[in-house]
Amino acid sequence: MEEDSVPAKILAYNRANRAVAILCNHQRAAPKTFDKQMENLQAKIKAKHEAIKKARKEFKAMKNEYKSSRNEKVKSALERKKTQVERLEEQLTKLEVSATDKEENKEIALGTSKLNYLDPRISVAWTKKWAVPIEKIYNRTQRDKFRWAIDMAGPDFVF
């Protein structure tokens, strides 16, 4: 889990929260706009795949050009392109994780279990242990409500 990205860690947290919500029967109706939202997300994922494909092709062409010329300007452009490809791949991963999370949460109300059944000290300790920003778990109002837990719990908190 240490090497996972923040979106992957949040997905794991939401899956644990979802298990609690299912046990407590915190169901909800799927949002009316759910299908449209998923369509839009899938379109973004497809567009990101295309952008990555294009960037990789450009990277390969630059690499061949650098091999033949050994030009320093081409080398720096090559490194920028490599960084761009890596950034695009991270964005794609984030979109795919988001789509998975959205699909799994379609008919489950996570907010109820997170606010009423999960001890906030455990959630805070988890965020500190795995270096996940607390803002990804609790919104501003929730952070104010659970300030006592944020101040108290460290990464080694044991319930």
Rank of each mutant, 00 (worst) to 15 (best):
K145E: 04
L110Y: 02
A99E: 10
R140D: 11
A131M: 07
V124L: 13
A131R: 08
I137G: 04
G154Q: 06
N105Y: 02
K136Y: 15
A125N: 06
R147G: 00
S123E: 10
G154N: 13
T127L: 00
R147W: 04
L110I: 10
P120K: 12
L115K: 15
I134S: 02
V124Y: 11
T112E: 12
S123W: 01
T127V: 11
I122V: 15
A109E: 09
G111V: 01
L115S: 15
V124W: 14
D144W: 01
D151S: 02
V124K: 14
N105R: 12
D119W: 10
D119L: 09
Y138K: 08
Y138I: 06
D101C: 13
K94N: 02
P155V: 04
T112P: 01
L110S: 05
I134V: 15
P120Q: 13
I137H: 12
T141I: 08
K136Q: 15
K114Q: 14
G111S: 10
I150W: 11
M152L: 10
L110A: 06
Y138Q: 07
Q142I: 00
K145P: 00
N105D: 09
L110M: 11
T141K: 10
D151N: 05
R147S: 08
G111W: 08
I150E: 12
S113W: 04
L95T: 02
M152D: 11
A125P: 02
K136V: 13
D144A: 14
I134R: 01
K114R: 14
